[in-house]
Structure formats: C-alpha cells, structure tokens
Amino acid sequence: MTYLTLLILSLGSLTALVLFGMIFYGIKNRKYMESLGENLDESTTVLKGDFKEIRRSLEGNEKQQERILKRLQNLETIVTSEAWDAIQAGEDENTIGLHLNDEEEEQPDAEEAARRIARKINR
C-alpha cells in the first residue's frame, strides 16, 4: 500500500469515528430533550389546573366583594337617613314613615334585613 492509500483510509476512519460520535451525542441529547419536554408538559398541565383554581377563587372573591359593597351601601343608607335619627330618638313608627312588618315568619339574615330596611327608608 502506498502512503496515499494509508492516509485516505486513516482520514476515512477518523471521519467515520467523528460521525459516529456525533450520532451518539445526538441520540443522547435527544433523549435528554424529550425528557425535558415531558417534564415541561407535566408542569404546564399542573400550572393550568392551578391557574383555573385561582381564577375561580378570584371570581368568588369578586362576587363576595360585590355582596359586601351592596350590604355596606344598604347600611349606609339606613344610618345616614333621617328615619334612623328618628328611630334613635325613640319616635313613633307612624311619624317616621316606616312600615316594618312584625309578621315575618322567617328570620332573615343580617344582610337581607339591612336590604329591606334600606328599601323602606328610600321610599
């Protein structure tokens, strides 16, 4: 064999070795990237679930805040009215103009009672 043939065979072997190394590294890296992708998919699914729960909680808090604000407005109407001053002074219901019914069979909760009184005072 001549030196040229030997040189070509050694370069070919070296090139094949480099190619096999690149293929091996690519396969190893691909498996690593696939595992990262799977972990990312799982994390994304968990985060989507958490986000939905947070969103539902926020919507519930907004509804509760609206209820509290409405109740506060009713209580404010009651406390700032002239009728409230008359009630505190002990005046008669007829002079106040309130027509509160004593025949309530059900005991309303505090929010409903405040709403009813506020409606009657606004009349």
Results as ranks from 00 to 15, higher is better:
residue 1 M to N: 00
residue 3 Y to T: 14
residue 3 Y to D: 15
residue 4 L to W: 03
residue 4 L to F: 11
residue 4 L to I: 11
residue 4 L to H: 09
residue 4 L to N: 08
residue 7 L to S: 07
residue 9 L to V: 12
residue 9 L to H: 05
residue 10 S to F: 07
residue 10 S to E: 05
residue 11 L to G: 05
residue 12 G to T: 11
residue 14 L to I: 15
residue 14 L to N: 08
residue 17 L to P: 00
residue 17 L to T: 13
residue 18 V to G: 06
residue 18 V to Q: 02
residue 19 L to T: 07
residue 20 F to G: 06
residue 23 I to R: 07
residue 23 I to H: 07
residue 24 F to G: 07
residue 24 F to N: 05
residue 26 G to K: 07
residue 27 I to Q: 03
residue 28 K to N: 08
residue 29 N to F: 08
residue 30 R to W: 10
residue 30 R to L: 08
residue 31 K to G: 05
residue 32 Y to W: 06
residue 32 Y to Q: 13
residue 32 Y to M: 12
residue 32 Y to P: 01
residue 35 S to G: 08
residue 36 L to F: 03
residue 36 L to R: 05
residue 39 N to C: 09
residue 39 N to H: 11
residue 40 L to A: 11
residue 40 L to T: 10
residue 40 L to P: 01
residue 42 E to A: 12
residue 45 T to D: 06
residue 45 T to L: 08
residue 46 V to D: 08
residue 46 V to A: 06
residue 46 V to E: 05
residue 46 V to F: 02
residue 47 L to V: 15
residue 47 L to S: 14
residue 48 K to V: 07
residue 49 G to E: 08
residue 50 D to E: 04
residue 50 D to I: 04
residue 52 K to R: 14
residue 52 K to P: 04
residue 53 E to D: 10
residue 53 E to Y: 04
residue 55 R to D: 14
residue 55 R to I: 13
residue 55 R to E: 15
residue 56 R to A: 15
residue 56 R to P: 00
residue 59 E to L: 09
residue 60 G to S: 14
residue 60 G to I: 08
residue 61 N to F: 11
residue 64 Q to F: 15
residue 64 Q to T: 13
residue 66 E to H: 10
residue 66 E to N: 12
residue 67 R to L: 14
residue 67 R to D: 11
residue 68 I to V: 06
residue 70 K to A: 09
residue 70 K to W: 02
residue 71 R to E: 09
residue 74 N to P: 05
residue 74 N to S: 14
residue 77 T to L: 04
residue 78 I to F: 01
residue 82 E to P: 06
residue 83 A to Y: 01
residue 84 W to A: 04
residue 84 W to K: 01
residue 85 D to T: 02
residue 87 I to C: 03
residue 87 I to G: 00
residue 87 I to K: 01
residue 89 A to F: 03
residue 90 G to N: 06
residue 91 E to G: 07
residue 91 E to K: 11
residue 91 E to V: 09
residue 91 E to Y: 07
residue 97 G to K: 03
residue 97 G to P: 00
residue 98 L to R: 02
residue 99 H to T: 11
residue 100 L to E: 03
residue 100 L to N: 02
residue 102 D to H: 09
residue 102 D to F: 13
residue 103 E to H: 05
residue 105 E to R: 02
residue 107 Q to F: 15
residue 108 P to G: 04
residue 108 P to C: 04
residue 109 D to C: 03
residue 111 E to Y: 07
residue 111 E to K: 04
residue 112 E to R: 01
residue 113 A to N: 03
residue 114 A to D: 05
residue 115 R to T: 14
residue 116 R to I: 13
residue 116 R to P: 01
residue 117 I to M: 02
residue 120 K to T: 08
residue 120 K to Q: 10
residue 123 R to G: 05
